[in-house]
């Protein structure tokens, strides 16, 4: 699905990613953990196509295409989805209206006809139920006046509407109470299939009780320094990151 090789990236001449390697196959869930400032959100932003970063080395292959050559919107239309850590409030633009535009841009990209109003509304009803998002919120301005939990559920609602091949959840669990966390995780698990993949970026092991990863990676100082099965997350929760730093120094 996605193969990241030796990725180096700077922001304003400061190196953030320093040779990151990661491969995610269809049907898999990967968790990326790591201390603050390790480059987790930078990785998410670079994959989504944010323009603030300079890629100095490396490659990203997304289903046979060079992801780094694609515009942000092309990546989305090809099936990459980023659930934002801080979803943006857009006053005056209705969630529904913008999602219909997004779906139709994607369909046009694939050479399909626009979705009918009836099918679209049926989809909204089905998917908003999945994340228990009030139908009223679905039709309000994008994220405007939403609580933190509502914003995150709205991200997963959009993900459900757009049915991506690869979803990247950037600290979607931060700030969620246990009920909201369950709802979000349930949404992600329901959408999971053999054809799509998920990268879960998180600070806390707690989320991984609900979204069970196939692999856990530790991102530290711009590189993946340790990978392991889901039990690695528990170990990190228990022991923190210092032992990994020590291991690195020893090596």
């Amino acid at each position: 699905m996605i193969t990241i090789k030796n990725l180096h990236a700077n922001i304003e001449d400061k190196a953030i990613l320093k040779g990151l390697n990661l491969e995610v196959k269809a049907g898999e869930v990967h968790a990326i953990m790591g201390p603050n400032g390790a480059g987790k959100s930078t990785l998410a932003s670079i994959l989504a196509g944010k323009e603030d970063y300079e890629i100095t080395e490396g490659s990203v292959d997304f289903d046979g295409e060079d992801l780094l050559e694609m515009e942000t919107e092309e990546r989305a239309r090809e099936g990459l989805f980023l659930a934002f850590q801080y979803p943006v409030e857009i006053p005056g633009v209705s969630n529904i209206n913008f999602l219909r535009t997004a779906i139709n841009e994607k369909r046009e990209h694939k050479g399909e006809d626009p979705i009918s109003a009836k099918d679209f509304m049926a989809l909204v009803r089905e998917k908003s139920k999945l994340v228990e998002l009030d139908a009223k919120l679905a039709s309000r301005s994008v994220n405007e006046g939403f609580s933190g939990g509502e914003k995150k559920r709205n991200e997963i609602f959009q993900m459900a509407m757009l049915e991506p091949k690869l979803a990247i959840l950037d600290e979607t669990d931060s700030g969620l109470d246990i009920d909201a966390l369950r709802i979000v995780a349930n949404g992600v698990n329901t959408l999971k299939s053999d054809d799509n993949a998920t990268i879960v970026i998180t600070h806390y092991q707690r989320l991984l009780d609900y979204i069970v990863p196939d692999f856990v990676h530790v991102l530290y100082d711009g590189r993946i320094v340790k990978s392991g099965p889901k039990e690695l997350a528990l170990e990190l929760e228990e022991k923190g990151y210092d032992w990994i730093k020590e291991e690195l120094v020893e090596a």
Binding site: A76, I90, A102
Partner: peptide
């Protein structure tokens, strides 16, 4: 906001 909308395919 422009980036957010583009990240959804607009």
């Amino acid at each position: 906001a422009v980036y957010y909308l583009r990240a959804r395919g607009l």
